[in-house]
Design a binder for these strands. Structure first.
Lengths: 226, 226
DNA sequence: TCTTTGATTTGACTTAAGTCAATGCCCTCA
DNA sequence: TGAGGGCATTGACTTAAGTCAAATCAAAGA
């Protein structure tokens, strides 16, 4: 697959005029990462940003005691670390491949030049940034306003929306899910058990079925205790 | 003060070429808000975004039980609600003036047209968005990785940086500060007392003096318990 | 099949922080 | 001067969730 073809896998970019895409293809660098391989580290000088063609990666921070807080998990078609390109020159968190992944790299300086020539690209990027801001505001709300059961319920309902069906499988393990919800595996395990006991969900392996969306919604909004 | 003069009070905008500023001045609407007056509500259709010329406003959410989580407090020169302009059409939180404030309003549609004509404006906005994203990521880290004493210490050190001196006065009351830190006034009060008892800070009224920055830093990083 | 290794679950305990209620402290205004 | 109101503090209690340690379970190889 050529760089150009890979670019077209990225939803944010594939609506750009062919000419812009060709320009982008000229500055982009494609490479593969193995599962567990680090992509960049917090405080690294930001040489550019990335787009994920294939695979899955996580953005995370480590506390002093080594507890991991996952800020984001990105899948195919998503862009990450673009923040670094426009503000200061350091990555704000770590990135690591969760699976074997194909990643496009956009060198900072060359992209910046390109951007001044193609205003449409800027507009699309503004849209992406705005959306990301929304997500983060939602995440702050989640972390600050809600208890763990509420966060889990909110997350499950979000998955329901994106999957479009009441039965779906988690594509991350429970350690990672705990990190994403801002808690620890033990607590997550206990909360899942309560959800099962109350008949809100069923779960075998990492396949989940939502049985009582109404109650889950109430829990997600803090209207009800589990 | 003309609209153009007011525009020049906004750091993000005042570096734009005079011509861009004049264009912006043509689409902008200026008005005053009284202390406590609402600016917009969560889920309102987003007709445009705002820039704060004078005063202070808060962006906040309410949980079902009425608990307020302050997401942001903006002062003169800052832009807010710009997210709504590029993503969907609803404001994600409430906004209210904390003081008598002069606010510029940029109508969505007219601004969008302008943006396509002046790519530089887009670049500057991308920078702002990137910075805001940074702040939110930092806030998530704060809320998810740290305890209340750590959040308070981090906040005080941040104030030290922006004020440039070890003695400064809080410009919000302790209820608001508690909200900003994701806690409640009682807890904040107890933590402040501990900080005072340990000689880390002094506080009379809302004037704070940082006495032991080293220990505050350690607490902010979770390296030490109070 | 039998280990081995890592993920998950469970139990016992600790702790940070929230709730509720009472009290204290200014500050303003009549 | 003193009464009222809002902010701030304190105490007693409750609770959600974290820690630590042990027990289970499960998948992957030898």
């Amino acid at each position: 697959m050529t760089d150009l073809d890979q670019l077209k896998q990225i939803p944010l970019l594939n609506q750009l005029p062919e000419e812009d895409l060709k320009n982008l293809a000229r500055i982009v660098v494609s490479r593969e990462y193995l599962a567990g391989e680090d992509i960049f580290y917090e405080n690294d000088s930001a040489k550019g940003f990335f787009a994920l063609v294939k695979g899955r990666i996580k953005i995370y921070k480590l506390s002093f005691m080594g507890k991991e807080q996952i800020l984001h998990i990105f899948g195919p078609g998503e862009i990450f670390a673009e923040v670094a390109v426009f503000s200061d020159q350091k990555y704000p968190a770590n990135a690591q491949a969760l699976q074997k992944s194909t990643i496009l790299f956009f060198p900072r300086q060359r992209f910046r030049e390109l951007l001044t020539q193609t205003p449409d690209l800027g507009l699309h990027l503004l849209g992406l940034f705005a959306l990301r801001l929304r997500e983060l505001v939602a995440k702050i709300e989640e972390l600050s306003l809600k208890e763990v059961p509420a966060r889990l319920a909110a997350h499950l309902l979000l998955l329901l929306e994106t999957e479009g069906k009441t039965t779906f499988s988690l594509n991350i393990n429970k350690n990672q899910l705990a990190g994403l919800l801002g808690t620890i595996p033990e607590t997550l395990s206990r909360v899942i058990k309560k959800f099962k006991d109350k008949g809100l969900i069923e779960m075998n392996g990492n396949v989940i079925t939502l049985k009582d969306q109404e109650t889950l919604k109430e829990i997600a909004q803090g209207l009800r205790r589990i």
